[in-house]
Design a protein around this nucleic acid. Structure first.
Length: 938
DNA sequence: GCACTCACG
DNA sequence: GACGTACGTGAGTGCC
């Protein structure tokens, strides 16, 4: 029996607005407004209940607007500009709509840069093309354009089907003309201009008479003179723009294939937990009575675990009690206190003593923590209960008396008590910054939690971890933007100049939001099984990184200045030669101009590329030309290398030397790389040149203080070792065990002999594996053909079947769970792993193959970094300073006399970093070098 | 603000 | 049958 498939697309965003206005202002048992959520929940219930009914859904998904911005704003910046802010008691219901959707275990579509209507259009088209029926659950007039024989709409509130007939009833024209009518009449709510004076009636009449918008506009001059005629002529462009705005995008990439939207029995959990949380008791009672909930199915099957055994103390989590964050009052920025007396500050600190929790945030006048001046701090002791303590507003002299502020030293003394108080948990969003700022005043923080780091442990790969984004996502709250407080551009003021009333709203909101986020995130750590990676890897790294950043690394300006001069001289002479070869002067740094010179003026071969229609002039293209003996190509390559080195390194690095410390202080991000790696910015010290001799010289500028040396310790081939472990490849493990050259061993295994050529090819193949190999990619790198590359891949997998198994198993798990996992339990989410778009999907697959390996490597070196300080301290080496981390390398500065002892400790900590959490089947090799500079230490 | 290019592991 | 093809980053430049 082949069932006609029927996809229901629920227009969630539109529904909640309607439900909000139609339903009474209900609140749940926590006093939160939930009217719209309740309406939405009952609607989903009703829809899901129609499974297997005639014309009921076999597949279902909810489509939501992700943000208020879409590509339409790029076309017309006033689009939806008139939209009033949603009412205060509706806003917190937006994230609950997501909770409700998840509670029903329904797929949820939310895409950036397009509106829900566009996704609905694209899905409707795709399902229709596959021969399915589609029902759009909405009554939005814009969506009526989509109605066709295989697509109808369903208005749940009026319980009414909308087919072509109903569309004609409403618009007087068929669905295919609805866009033209809408374009003429405009839409004041969405700020679609339309033609002034033309409303629904006139628009319909015109389209009925002339057929479509362009015909109406074309016919306008011949109409009898009237205001309408003039308007049609004058505002023709507005009408055309309106047509573009109301036309739905039907070719959006589909993040979830329609087949995956199959509607089955709704699992009892998490639905029951959701209903219970809100106290939707009448619905809760119906679980189990409804044919389509899993509970009912279980009851029929007689599930032995359905009833609790009574004492459950040591048993698995109890169904129906899935943790949900506590109810919180709506955010009210007018309720925050500006603390200007010691008495009031003491009050807040004593409140923190009572609750044992305080969210904390510092305000400064700079993003650079090492030099930032402390301007104030905010505290939140409970949701909605927050304050701001200004310290440095309205003046730059820290010691100056300011009657409106608590004296700096006095406030800091009290803050110190709070921050070190062991019974109070301090919660921050990106606490590394606050720790670094406060370190200037000798303050430390313990114990602590960091909501940004928690979010990363939970949701890496799924979304960003900035506070504004998390607040939007988890709290449905739009934070006051920093820019709205300080202004932008030329007129931007420092936070110290912000009036106290504005500063209080902004700063206290940050603390309040951070506390609320903590309640959401903390609960998820354990059920989501990321406690280990959060508690033992990422969280303890926060103060370690802060210390490294504050320490910085000494950079010898003279070395950089000399290199800058040399590079400039070489560039100048190259530039002359290049212009001569080209026969004209041009900007070598402009790929556009260079492309035109090379491929049009000089007539070299090399095709266009990319959407921009520009010639590609990247290194592969130029190398290719150089190989053919094109002199200018080689010179451009040399010029480019010099330009890069000079601008990115020798010039700008000099500017980054902190005048107070004479050192460069990078900033590490714990959440910068989805795999769990760190990233480094301002400046990026993880990409200092090393591969070419010219670039390498830059490392000579990174030096030790007199009497000290630089020590560099790096893991040798750590990712390949981990691959050998993951895939359990005996010959590779054996080679690592014996300390052999791994690429040579691979060559031996694959080709039966080791020489320069086979070792080189084996090395390329080894790395390809880590990145998710493709025959074309390998062919390109080996300069061979895809067929030959495929033969090598086959040979590799045949010789090392474990690798092939690892790849298949990893992909199967990621497809099933949505995320990859490292040996330490770090997750990376791959929301596009099932994308219907092939390139997108395959990209996710390659990343997913790589993530456990790259991520485990990151976990291991992070563990080493966390243990390094205490280990050195315990060995009586307090003067050894850890300065940099470059993914598989740690850089230290230490007294010359400590080298031997420190090397031992560093080697041991790094080599044993996985223990005892993880037992590897390969040893971790560590190589150590020392010298007066980073360059010399390699 | 985006595309391109290129520095690193 | 065409398409585009290695994983993860950050920064400087030209150009719209």
């Amino acid at each position: 029996m082949s069932e006609q498939k029927h996809l229901y697309l629920v227009d969630g965003s539109a529904y909640i607005f309607r439900a909000y206005h139609r339903l009474p202002p209900l609140t749940n048992i926590h006093g939160e407004p939930v009217g719209a959520v309740y309406g939405y929940t009952t609607m989903l219930w009703k829809l899901a209940d129609d499974l297997h009914q005639a014309d009921g859904p076999t597949h279902m998904a909810v489509v939501l607007d992700k943000s208020s911005q879409s590509f339409r704003n790029e076309i017309y910046d006033l689009y939806k500009a008139n939209r009033p802010e949603p009412p205060e008691d509706l806003r917190p219901q937006f994230p609950m709509i997501r909770d409700a959707t998840r509670a029903f275990s329904l797929p949820m579509i939310e895409e950036d840069n397009v509106e829900a209507d566009d996704m609905i259009a694209s899905y409707a088209k795709a399902a229709c093309a596959a021969g399915w029926d589609v029902t759009i659950v909405s009554s939005d007039k814009d969506l009526m354009q989509l109605v066709e024989p295989c697509v109808d709409m369903f208005d749940t509130m009026k319980n009414e089907r909308i087919r072509a007939e109903e569309v004609i009833g409403k618009f007087g024209v068929g669905p295919e003309k609805v866009g033209d009518v809408l374009a003429l009449m405009g839409d004041s709510v969405d700020n679609v201009p339309g033609v002034p004076g033309v409303g629904p009636k006139t628009a319909t009449k015109l389209i009925q008479e002339f057929g479509d918008l362009e015909s109406v506009l074309a016919a306008a001059p011949d109409m009898k003179p009237s205001k309408m005629r003039d308007n049609l002529i004058e505002h023709a462009d507005k009408a055309r723009l309106s047509k573009v705005l109301v036309t739905l995008k039907e070719d959006c990439p589909l993040p979830i294939p329609i087949e995956d939207m199959k509607l089955g029995a709704i699992p009892e959990e998490p639905l029951a937990a959701f209903l219970q949380h809100h106290g939707f008791n009448s619905l809760l009672k119906r679980i189990g009575q409804v044919a389509n909930t899993a509970a009912a199915n279980k009851a029929i099957a007689g599930n032995p675990k359905a009833t609790s055994k009574g004492d459950g103390a040591a048993s698995a989590p109890v169904a129906g009690k899935a943790a949900l964050p506590p109810a919180m009052p709506p955010i009210d920025v007018n309720a925050y206190e500006c603390v200007t007396t010691v008495d009031r500050l003491d009050h807040w600190i004593s409140r923190a003593m009572e609750t044992g929790l305080v969210a904390f945030d510092t305000e400064t006048d700079s993003l650079e923590a090492v030099t930032a001046r402390l301007v104030g701090f905010s505290l939140a002791v409970a949701p909605g209960e927050a304050c701001y303590v200004p310290l440095g507003h309205g003046g730059t002299d820290l010691l100056a008396e300011n009657p409106e502020q608590i004296p700096f030293a006095e406030a800091l003394a009290r803050l110190k008590l709070l921050l070190v108080e062991p019974s109070i948990l301090k919660i921050g969003q990106n606490l590394k910054y606050d720790i670094s700022v406060l370190a200037q005043h000798g303050l430390t923080i313990a114990p602590y939690d960091d909501t940004m780091v928690m979010s990363f442990a939970l949701d890496a790969g799924d979304h960003g971890h900035g506070m504004d984004e998390l607040a939007r996502l988890h709290l449905g709250h739009e934070c006051i933007s920093y820019k709205s407080v300080t202004g932008t551009g030329k007129s931007q003021i420092g936070f110290a100049e912000v009036p106290l009333s504005d500063a209080t709203k902004y700063a206290a909101e940050d603390a309040d939001v951070t506390l609320r986020l903590w309640h959401h995130l903390k609960l998820r750590l354990s059920p989501d099984k990321v406690t280990t990676v959060y508690e033992l890897v990422d969280r303890p790294l926060v103060p370690v990184l802060s210390k490294m950043e504050c320490t910085g690394i000494k950079v010898d300006r003279a070395v950089l200045a000399r290199l800058s001069g040399e590079f400039a001289a070489q560039m100048e002479s190259l530039e002359k030669e290049i212009h001569e070869l080209a026969g004209q002067p041009f900007t070598i740094g402009s790929p556009q101009q260079l492309g035109n010179i090379l491929f049009e003026k000089m007539g070299h071969k090399g095709g266009k590329k990319g959407k921009s229609g520009q010639y590609s002039t990247d290194v592969t293209v130029l190398e290719d030309l150089a190989g053919q003996g094109v002199e200018i190509a080689r010179k451009v390559l040399d010029w480019r290398q010099l330009a890069k080195l000079k601008s990115t390194y020798t010039d700008s690095l000099q500017e980054q030397i902190n005048p107070k410390t004479g050192r460069v202080h990078t900033s590490y991000s714990l959440v910068g790389a989805q795999t769990g790696r760190l990233s480094s910015t301002d400046p990026n010290l993880q990409n200092i040149p090393i591969r070419t001799e010219m670039g390498r010289q830059i490392r000579d500028a990174f030096v030790a203080e007199p009497g000290n040396v630089i020590l560099s310790a790096d893991y040798s081939q750590i990712e390949l070792r981990l691959a050998a472990h993951f895939a359990d490849v005996a010959p590779l493990r054996d080679a690592f065990e014996k300390g052999e050259d791994i690429h040579a061993r691979t060559a031996q295994e694959m080709f039966g002999e080791v020489n320069r050529d086979t070792r080189g090819r084996a090395k390329t193949i080894n790395f390809s594996i880590l990145y998710g190999i493709s025959r074309w990619g390998l062919a390109k790198r080996l300069e061979s053909t895809p067929d030959e590359a495929q033969a090598l891949i086959d040979a590799y997998f045949k010789r090392f079947p474990g690798i092939s198994n690892y790849i298949q198993e990893t992909l199967a798990t990621v497809r099933e769970c949505g995320h990859s996992t490292t040996l330490f339990g770090r997750k990376t989410w791959f929301p596009r792993i099932k994308s219907a778009n092939q390139a997108e999907r395959q990209g996710s697959e390659r990343a997913a193959i790589n993530a456990p390996i790259q991520g485990t490597s990151a976990d291991i070196i992070k563990r080493a970094m966390v243990r390094m300080g205490p280990a050195l301290e315990a060995a009586g080496l307090p003067h050894v300073k850890m300065l940099l981390q470059v993914h598989d390398e740690l850089v230290f500065e230490l007294p010359e006399g400590d080298v031997a002892a420190a090397s031992k400790v560093i080697e041991a900590v790094m080599a044993d970093a996985a223990e005892p959490l993880v037992k590897l089947t390969v040893p971790l090799g560590v190589e150590i070098g020392t010298g007066t500079s980073w360059g010399a230490a390699h």
